[in-house]
């Protein structure tokens, strides 16, 4: 992941492949939403959404291949948001029980 060792940019073939992966995950999401048991459903849905998120940001947005500075800028917001809003929702009692 260092600056010097940029992995080569993906080719259109890779892009199509990634799209197929994204499509499959989306189908799986919908399936899980309908048939999943509540206990596993929520974490599973979040995990799949996160996977899609990472794939699009990492490959389509090329964040994987970008300079560290860009990554940090975006990560700052990305890390701050769940923590801050997690605390807010926690204080409303949304995250525990209810």
């Amino acid at each position: 992941m260092t600056e010097a060792a940029h992995p080569p940019h993906p080719t259109p073939r890779d892009y199509w492949l990634i799209a197929v992966v994204l499509a499959v995950i989306t189908a799986a999401e919908v399936a899980v939403a309908y048939i999943g048991v509540d206990v596993v459903k929520v974490p599973l849905l979040f995990a799949m959404a996160f996977a899609k998120f990472v794939i699009v940001v990492g490959w389509y947005m090329h964040l994987r291949y970008e300079k560290k500075a860009y990554r940090r800028l975006f990560y700052l917001g990305l890390i701050a948001a769940p923590i801050l809003f997690g605390v807010v929702l926690f204080s409303f009692g949304v995250l525990i029980g209810s």
Partner: peptide, 23 residues
Amino acid sequence: LAMWAFLGSEVLLFGSLITTFLL
């Protein structure tokens, strides 16, 4: 770089909206 910074900011914008929705 500026665009990435702006998107970092947008994360918080949508974060607030999503939080409101979750509530």
